[in-house]
Design a protein around this nucleic acid. Structure first.
Length: 263
DNA sequence: TCGATCCTGTAG
DNA sequence: CTACAGGATCGA
């Protein structure tokens, strides 16, 4: 389920499980799910970080695991590796009996082991973090200028900005009142400055609902849920003008937008 | 830039 | 049964 806000909340949750013990054992059901897991055995987990939609688990001995949750993955710490659900595709058993598990019904999630020195090249193609100082209106304007993609595809391109996916790209475009099919390079600097602003607003709000859901694992966080304006709302009234929300295909994915507000 | 691919689950 | 799913990559 994860875009930047959800991945961030997974990482925050992992940090709550610190300090971690050493990795005592590992396992996986398919060879494709994880590469190099065995090389983690005997190492200590030292930190959990996020880069775009990637999770980085720092390990002792100048190494790290890169974990990508793709569409349906989740990373959890469970009290006992033996208690793992059937959809757990890979796991790391810790010295203290707990386990870090990749739970992923669709099994698209991936884990790979790397030496610390590989980090730069591994993430070389990722664009700036939306909350970094590097991500300025000027950056977005320059990035838009050198693409030929429509606005929605541009926002989902991890090389342009890291962390946006299908939902928040659509939501940001709605709030910036930009048509998802509009060529990004033709957007005015003013529009792109607004887009820059709402990308941060949308992600910050989503981050808050993601952490609220965490503080209340009982599932009573409904009231704090992210206020979805258009995503998944085909045929429903636009919250701003009440026109019917439309769904179109872009790059093989669904895009939702208000045909009246987003020209 | 499209379509297929990786996978499984769920809604219609 | 088909369509589609909050991702990303690859080849045509």
């Amino acid at each position: 389920m994860p875009e930047l806000p959800e991945v961030e909340s997974v990482v925050v949750r992992l940090r709550d499980a610190a300090p971690w013990a050493k990795i005592a054992a590992c396992g996986q059901f398919r060879p494709t799910t994880a590469r190099g897991l065995k090389r983690t055995v005997g190492r200590a987990v030292e930190a959990a970080e996020r880069r775009g939609k990637n999770i980085i688990l720092r390990l002792s001995g100048e190494a790290f695991l890169r974990i990508h949750l793709k569409m349906t993955g989740g990373l959890h710490v469970i009290p006992d590796a033996k208690l793992r659900k059937s959809t757990v595709r890979a796991w790391l058993t810790l010295d203290d009996g707990r386990a870090i598990v990749l739970n992923d019904p669709r099994a698209l999630g991936r884990i790979s082991f790397h030496h610390a020195k590989e980090e730069r090249s591994l993430f070389a193609d990722l664009g700036p973090e939306p909350f970094s100082e590097e991500f300025t209106p000027e950056y977005l304007i320059a990035a838009a200028k050198r693409t030929s993609k429509p606005a929605k595809i541009f926002l989902m391109d991890q090389r342009a900005v890291a962390g946006l996916g299908n939902i928040y790209a659509a939501e940001a475009l709605f709030h910036a009142r930009i048509h998802p099919a509009a060529p990004a390079r033709q957007l005015s600097a003013k529009k792109l400055a607004v887009l820059h602003r709402v990308i941060r607003d949308v992600l910050e709000l989503a981050l808050r609902s993601a952490s609220a859901a965490y503080e209340d694992p009982g599932g009573f966080a409904e009231a704090e849920d992210f206020p979805v304006a258009v995503y998944g709302r085909e045929g429903e009234p636009c919250p701003r003008c009440a026109a019917r929300v439309r769904r179109v295909a872009q790059g093989g994915r669904s895009t939702y937008y208000c045909p009246k507000c987003q020209k």
